[in-house]
């Protein structure tokens, strides 16, 4: 009963099958940034509070700052880098740009990934639902109002695209 020190994992990251050997103590944020160069994943509070490290694992939002890379074996991981198609921004990204929903941009990948999750669960959220969904995401620049508008705008774009 010595236990594992490293594990081999095979997550599907932004649509690509990936095989990695990682120390069991490695967080998902460390793996995505330091091993794979996915710097859209930010790290700040490391306490599940600020949301800048948000990525989706099997469609569910997680704080990659305090989530073991080892736990992504066989699962789908989506980061902000996985949204655009070539040079064409994802409708959520475009809505954030068009609505000036970012200033310094540090919180933006987290808000965008949370938005992706919200709109999959609830394609036309009202204001209250959006605000509640962002309980764990902090932005120190925008005052949130343009972010909420961007989510509503993105919901409209995705709705039109879907129909």
């Amino acid at each position: 009963m010595i236990g594992l020190d490293t594990v081999e994992i095979a997550p599907r990251i932004n649509g690509r099958e990936t095989v990695l050997e990682v120390p069991v103590r490695m967080t998902l944020a460390e793996m995505l940034r330091d091993r794979l160069g996915l710097y859209g994943v930010k790290v700040s509070c490391e306490m599940q509070v600020c949301g800048v490290c948000t990525v989706l694992v099997d469609g569910q939002p997680v704080s990659s700052c305090t989530f073991l890379a080892a736990d992504t074996d066989g699962r789908r991981v989506l980061t902000v880098e996985g949204l655009a198609e070539g040079d064409r921004l994802h409708p959520i990204q475009q809505a954030f740009v068009d609505r000036f929903a970012l200033q310094c941009g540090f919180c933006t990948p987290g808000f965008i990934m949370m938005t992706k999750h919200l709109l999959e669960r609830s394609p036309l959220p009202d204001r209250e639902e959006i605000v509640e969904h962002f309980d764990g995401n902090l932005c120190r620049c925008t005052g949130y109002a343009p972010i909420i508008e961007a989510v509503q705008d993105a919901a409209g774009r995705l709705g039109r695209r879907g129909s």
Partner: peptide
């Protein structure tokens, strides 16, 4: 980034 202290993982 703060690192997690080392530990060993068991997967029953």
């Amino acid at each position: 980034m703060g690192v997690l202290p080392a530990f060993r993982l068991h997967r029953p």
